Amino acid sequence: MQLEIQGKQAYAYSGGKRFDPLLPTIVFIHGAQNDHSVWGLQSRWFAHHGYGVLAVDLPGHGRSSGPALASVEQMADWLLALLDAAGVRKAILAGHSMGSLVALEASLRAPAKVRALAMLGTTYPMKVSDALLATARDDEGAAIDMVNIWSHSSIAHKPSSPAPGFSVMGGARRLMQRMSALNPDQLFYTDFSACNAYANGEAAAAAVRCPTLFIFGSKDMMTPARSTKVLTGGIKHGKVVQVDAGHSLMSEQPDAVLEALDAFALSLEET
């Protein structure tokens, strides 16, 4: 689905179904150096089970025109503009890593538009080490390799990958490399810098009143569960689910993530 946001082309995958803004809407927001495809299983499932789905490509990522936006606040404004352009009055926002901060900030800026929040692989502050920032700036390929290793719970997933013949780590690495090829203007550094600089998370968390779900990877080295106390403490009514995965939990444990999101969405219908 192509939209025009702030004079530029924006893309949102609708899960293989024509998007209908009259349906309950769930919006999926990817993390740094990724695109909508990281939500492949989850977005398609919801689209085929009664939801309107928008799995976005943030500016400068995937099929959305650049440049990449330099702050979480700018990304949140862009996301809210996309909801308006798509005719969405209210939505569940599901964000991974950097995308979770975008969802959180959007909920602060427009609480009436946010039905619920699902924050995956999240933490606050989302600080990035000086060494990784410098590598992302000076040698993006090396930064991709570093993050790809740290984002997964194992080099060889056992007993096998979720899909036979599919490499979880290989797919993640190739996706990040593709983002570099599509947007060679220091995309990873821009994304990491936005995460590192975001300073509004505590205030945004304190303002959250909508139902909230946290999904953490029990083996996450990028945003370990022990680092999430500012968010889980600020959003005390949030439900916490852990899955046996690293930071790339949607690909390592796609069914477990889907099960948690589905249960959360069903709970909204019951209230």
Score class of each variant (00 low, 15 high):
I5P: 03
A10S: 07
K17Q: 15
K17V: 12
F19K: 08
T25C: 04
H30F: 09
V38W: 01
G40L: 15
G40H: 14
Q42R: 05
R44V: 05
F46G: 02
H48K: 04
V56L: 10
D57N: 00
P59I: 10
H61Y: 03
H61C: 12
S64C: 08
A68I: 00
A68M: 05
D77E: 12
G95C: 13
H96N: 14
S100V: 02
A116N: 04
M119W: 00
G121I: 03
T122V: 04
T123S: 15
S129V: 09
A131I: 04
A131F: 06
R137Q: 10
G141W: 05
G141K: 09
I155M: 13
P162C: 06
G171H: 01
R174K: 15
Q177E: 05
Q177M: 12
R178S: 05
M179W: 03
D185F: 07
T190A: 10
A197N: 12
A204T: 07
A204I: 02
R209D: 12
F216D: 07
G217C: 08
R226N: 13
R226E: 15
S227V: 11
T228V: 14
V230M: 11
G233C: 01
G238D: 01
K239H: 09
H247N: 06
S248Y: 14
A265C: 09
A265D: 09
L266W: 11
E269K: 13
